[in-house]
Design a protein around this nucleic acid. Structure first.
Lengths: 411, 411
DNA sequence: AGGCTTTTGTTCACGCCAAGAGCATAAGCT
DNA sequence: AGCTTATGCTCTTGGCGTGAACAAAAGCCT
């Protein structure tokens, strides 16, 4: 968030701070707590809350437990307030959910698909279209592959090459779709969710690794996954850290991800792998074959050591199949990790933990990415202009200018 | 910089913005340019500049070339303004310099030392003490090894183990030393300098690699090198990216830095290496042995490819011996880099460039690290309180409270 | 039950800040 | 010498957060 330089921007800035605080705590904190936490005067908080309530962004409800003193209120999502649509697209199905401010998720639809870009995205686009309303402030889509800033996606194991996700989503949709449409990869979005509502909360530098068929990972800096120059990063799986030397579908050789994910497990026990099939079998291997699991865990530990040497994160979190590897072969993991650490890192090695949000993280991350775009001075200003819930409470009391047209933001 | 939330902080914030703009451009821009660039009203700029001039932070001089209209002024360092002390400690000598706002450097002393922590740091501490004055707003020290947040430093090739740099610097110094004392490693500081005054200026995500005896490297995010949890990062040299499998002095195996720096060059031609000796010979090898140079360049390129896969930086900059490797064996470098890239990275690979500041970067980075601490609302407030150039221009015109004591900040 | 204490919300006067208009200034240009 | 142009300065204006005074709404105590 760019910081305020004029007194006018101050107000917008404080509106965002308050709304973000409500969102980040899941609408659990009372107004008086928020006032203290944000270092506001009570009077300022009054004005801010009143303004946000009038704009259908907040709605206060009485707090549950009291002690003494005048009872305080808990600001939470407004019944007519903003909604983020979030979609998680996996190899054989997608899931679409609506999320309100504060993070409450309602699953709207789950549908299988045939794995082709068109098959997966056209049906999702239709579902998105069905659930559009003035309340929708954006769509976040999680996909299992590298995403470029222009929305093009490659998913090697599904054979997706430079797939234009926003365009395919728009098939059969009415004129104006959700705005913005944020496309991100599963590992990066899982990391984002973990940073906001999981184990990486409050962590200045964390490392998140997401184990699915492949391995994805990112650094989380000050609560935000680190983007690359041409798109979200999250490609730690394509460094040669696992000790192998297989050619990888990505075009490089010896990629770490080749040795760690579900594909590696399947390969290890001689099953067919690749193409995005075999989730069920992989889970059987994970439960059954100690040897395959330990091999994966060792490769995971080896790479973690290299990344810890280089980046010195405070915590390493694992999502997807990662927690299972940690639970069933934790000693193999740490046993391969420790000797590969620099001596000075061994004194205080980072914690290696299961992510708090598990597989749900990718969907929650898609939601957070939408709210990240919304919870800005610009996002709130647009909400005011497009005017949801117009005139219901206070007819004619506002001078709304319906001037600025919606603008497409892709990242 | 934490952003303003009250109207009082607004002024402090804008003072910082203006001063930072003057510093970052090297005191070249005119007041009218700055006013436009920072989106200030002319009146606001007037007040800000007047205030900063009264506090002995800025001094305006007439601009050189005019066109039409009333001539404008160029704000630059005040003759009694803040000075940053910056030291570059190498294996056999140190250099101490004083830097004014805007970045002009005056070398104060250069002295050889015996390579021991005491030998190097006591004499440097004495020199620092000799040049202390009320104008000094901090000391930055660049060292060739990992630094922890508490100021402890390890330099494997010099045998420094958990050396308490601030303490040794204080030997024989009078009661109050410079404040803050910022200790950083050479690669990280070179990256910082490059981010502010070199090729990484304005780059959102860059990768900087510093080749000396070993190899150091960091990501530069939004103009700042990425710190680790327990200290500045800059340890990319200790990932297994170079294709070797030698045990490293750091305690791990196969470290990339083993294959790239001056030590690797010396080893490649059968000369003694390690212990921080052999800078002259290494430069001869660099000039003479094509084979050794190409081996180093290949290892460098291989690691760069892995890092580009993972992080997707916009530019990769090389300092120390890096530019020589690039110049004398650029094809070997790119030849080993390209095939190790993911296919999607090959389409638009990042530029690999020599750093603009060369070996000077470490010293300049040490300076920037001091100004980074100073150019904050807190830093400027302290300057006001400790009151440089008190009452010279405007005796008794200010109500200065000499209350807040100096406070030690180490990082 | 009634009064007291405690905490929170509301209102308003105040001070501070940046914006912006009007005017002054100092050059180049004709 | 007078005009044009860009910049600096000053003063008024509107907006914002602060903090004090007051009101409100509960729990607590006698």
């Amino acid at each position: 968030m760019r910081s305020a330089t004029t007194s006018g921007e101050l107000r917008a800035h404080n509106r965002v701070r308050l709304l973000r605080a409500v969102h980040d705590c899941g609408a659990t904190r009372t107004r008086s707590q928020l006032t203290r936490d944000l270092n506001l005067a009570r009077g300022t908080a009054s004005v801010l809350v009143a303004g946000l309530a009038e704009d259908a962004l907040l709605h206060e409800e009485p707090a549950a437990g009291h002690t003494r003193g005048r009872p305080t209120q808990v600001p939470g999502p407004h019944p007519g307030g903003p909604l983020a649509l979030a979609a998680d697209v996996r190899e054989d199905a997608w899931e679409l959910a609506a999320c309100e401010l504060g993070g409450r998720v309602s699953v709207l639809e789950v549908q299988p698909h045939d794995g082709t870009p068109e098959g997966a995205l056209a049906s999702l686009g239709q579902a998105v279209s069905d659930h559009l309303s003035r309340r929708v402030v954006g769509l976040g889509v999680a996909l299992a592959g590298p995403v470029r800033h222009d929305g093009l996606v490659d998913i090697a194991h599904l054979g997706w090459r430079s797939v234009d996700v926003p365009r395919l989503l728009a098939l059969g949709r009415r004129a104006s779709g959700p705005d913005p449409v944020v496309v991100g990869n599963d590992a990066g979005l899982a990391a984002l969710a973990e940073a906001r509502r999981g184990r990486l909360r409050g962590v200045r530098l964390g490392l998140h690794l997401h184990v699915d068929f492949d391995l994805g990972g990112v650094l989380v800096v000050d609560g935000r996954p680190l983007d690359g120059a041409s798109g979200p990063g999250a490609e730690f799986g394509h460094m040669p850290l696992g000790g192998g030397d297989r050619p990888c579908a990505c075009g490089a050789t010896g990629c770490w991800g080749q040795e760690v994910g579900a594909n590696a497990l399947l390969r290890h026990v001689g099953l067919a792998y690749g193409g995005g099939r075999g989730r069920a079998q992989a889970e059987e291997v994970l439960a059954g074959s100690r040897e395959a699991v330990e091999a994966g865990a060792r490769a995971l530990g080896l790479g973690i050591a290299a990344l810890v040497n280089a980046h010195d994160p405070e915590v390493v979190t694992l999502s997807g199949h990662g927690p299972a590897l940690l639970e069933r072969a934790g000693e193999a993991l740490t046993g391969s990790c420790a000797p590969a650490l620099m001596a000075i890192r061994r004194e205080r090695p980072p914690r290696i933990e299961a992510a708090a949000l598990g597989w749900r993280g990718t969907l929650l991350g898609a939601m957070e990415s939408v709210f990240d775009a919304f919870l800005t001075p610009e996002g709130l200003e647009r909400w005011r202009e497009t005017g949801p819930d117009q005139g219901a409470d206070t007819p004619g009391s506002r001078n709304v200018t319906h001037s600025t047209p919606k603008q497409k933001i892709l990242q």
